[in-house]
């Protein structure tokens, strides 16, 4: 079986580089996008198993991107983890995890915890 593919979408280069390094060390194949538009463009040619998606990005918000992914028949199976600095309650976290949204990781995150939750999401 090939390596699992993960797309990271974030407008902050330091986050992209850090998460990319963490996931490549876990032997995942990693691709990056700097905003929602670039993510949707990449999804025309790539089919990741999981998207790590920031909320606050220039142009399209993470919610708008996840809604576009969810309604597209070819993409709706792709799992999404929100990766965001926005702080919500435990109850709200559960509310957000519906359809293909499988987790909500808050920045700043623990590197090992991030890797563990990505592995869990892909099981």
């Amino acid at each position: 079986m090939g390596r699992k593919k993960i797309m990271i979408v974030d407008d902050e280069d330091n986050i992209l580089n850090l998460v990319k390094a963490i996931l490549e060390a876990e032997n995942f194949e990693v691709m990056v996008a700097h905003d929602g538009k670039e993510c949707l463009e990449l999804l025309k040619i790539e089919e990741p198993d999981l998207i790590l998606l920031d909320f606050m990005m220039p142009g399209m918000s993470g919610v708008a991107v996840s809604e576009r992914v969810r309604v597209e028949p070819k993409l709706k199976h792709i799992k999404i983890i929100y990766l965001t600095a926005l702080d919500v309650s435990e109850f709200e976290r559960k509310l957000l995890q519906k359809n293909n949204i499988v987790d909500y990781i808050q920045k700043p995150f623990d590197n090992k915890d991030l890797a563990k939750r990505v592995r869990k999401a892909l099981k």
Partner: peptide, 10 residues
């Protein structure tokens, strides 16, 4: 602009 009311209340 960073936390929901629910998060702050919690």
């Amino acid at each position: 602009l960073s936390k929901t009311y629910g998060s702050l209340a919690e």
